[in-house]
């Protein structure tokens, strides 16, 4: 099988092997019998058919044997699956927010990250929060997948990673234009390493070394929040208008159905992030973006502005 790194892998992969083993056995043997019949009984070799009577015994045999086998499949499928439905009481709880088209992960102490950081050999319970449409939280290496349903109570999944390293997280439920770009990573760390990261006080506030280039910080925020899924950096139009070559220009927008001219400045950027439907750039549709209020701080917006400015250079 493919790479596996959670406690579910053993049960799931056993069910795979059990089912695929039986499937290959039947596929190969029935095909071989068919090929043999075609060879042995073709018209040239066997010009006259011999009529054969139906046999009830045979019919019962090939009903009962497959029935027993599939009940075995049902059983192992059940056994491999039931632990996924029983999250333990104790564990690290993390909330995954999904929106078109990015994941973000919120920890109990308020820390937010775009990658999922978890400790090894520890139960991790993920509360699933879909903010707009259906998404699905899928980690192939852990063998888990659960739909993220807007408005659904108790929408959650859990896992216990067994190997450190990083693994892909995919959105598996089709969610529109950039569905195939809605992915993230789960980083499994040694336990002490994780807790160090978790409690790192510096990480709670945006770390700004004095010599840091604000534009580069802005670039990091833009990619970690998934903005570039809809806003290009090269001038092309995606779902939303491009970021390139716009800052400082006067642009035409629709506000309350009225066309108006507005300066693309810091104030405008802030309003577009906190209240995206207030001004709609000409040629684009409202209702495509949710507000990032509470997710992107005003301080961070300053860095984003610095980055946008740098795109004009």
């Amino acid at each position: 099988m493919i790479l596996g790194a959670s406690t579910f892998v053993e049960g799931v992969d056993f069910a795979f092997m059990f089912i695929l083993g039986i499937a290959f056995f039947f596929l190969i043997s029935i095909t071989a019998v068919m090929i043999f019949f075609i060879y042995r009984y073709n018209k040239k070799r066997n010009p006259k058919a011999t009529q054969v009577k139906d046999s009830t015994t045979l019919e019962i045999t090939w009903t009962v044997i497959p029935l027993i086998l599939v009940m075995g499949m049902f059983y192992y499928g059940y056994v491999g699956w039931i632990p996924m439905k029983k999250p333990p009481e104790e564990g690290v709880t993390i909330t995954s927010h999904a929106r078109m088209w990015s994941f973000s992960f919120e920890y109990e102490n308020g820390r937010v990250s775009d990658k999922l950081y978890v400790p090894v050999d520890t139960a991790v319970i993920i509360n699933l929060n879909a903010m707009d449409v259906l998404h699905a939280f899928y980690i192939p290496a852990f063998r888990i997948k659960e739909d993220m349903v807007p408005g659904l109570a108790n929408n959650r999944t859990w896992f216990e990673a067994t190997k450190t390293g990083s693994y892909s997280v995919f959105c598996a439920e089709y969610c529109g234009l950039q569905h195939s770009y809605m992915l993230s990573e789960v980083v499994v760390m040694e336990q002490d390493e994780f807790w160090e990261w978790y409690h790192d006080p510096d990480a709670m506030t945006l770390e700004v070394p004095d010599d840091a280039d604000p534009a580069i910080l802005g670039r990091q925020i833009i990619s970690s929040k998934g903005c570039t899924a809809c806003h290009s950096l090269d001038g092309s139009s995606l779902v939303g208008p491009t970021f390139a070559g716009r800052y400082g220009e006067t642009i035409t927008v629709i506000t309350d159905g009225q066309e108006r001219e507005v300066l693309y400045d810091e104030e405008y950027v802030k309003r577009s992030i906190y209240d995206p439907d207030y001004d709609i750039t000409e040629g684009f549709r409202p209702g495509q973006m949710l507000s990032y209020e509470g997710e992107i701080s005003e301080e961070e917006i300053e860095f984003i502005v610095a980055f946008l400015e740098s795109l004009n250079e």
Partner: peptide
């Protein structure tokens, strides 16, 4: 049809379905 049916067993079983559903 056999290949289609036999791989359907993978999808009918809970543990394996979770992994390959929507793939």
């Amino acid at each position: 049809f056999m290949i289609g049916g036999l791989t359907g067993l993978v999808l009918g079983s809970l543990a394996t379905n979770v992994h390959v559903h929507d793939t």
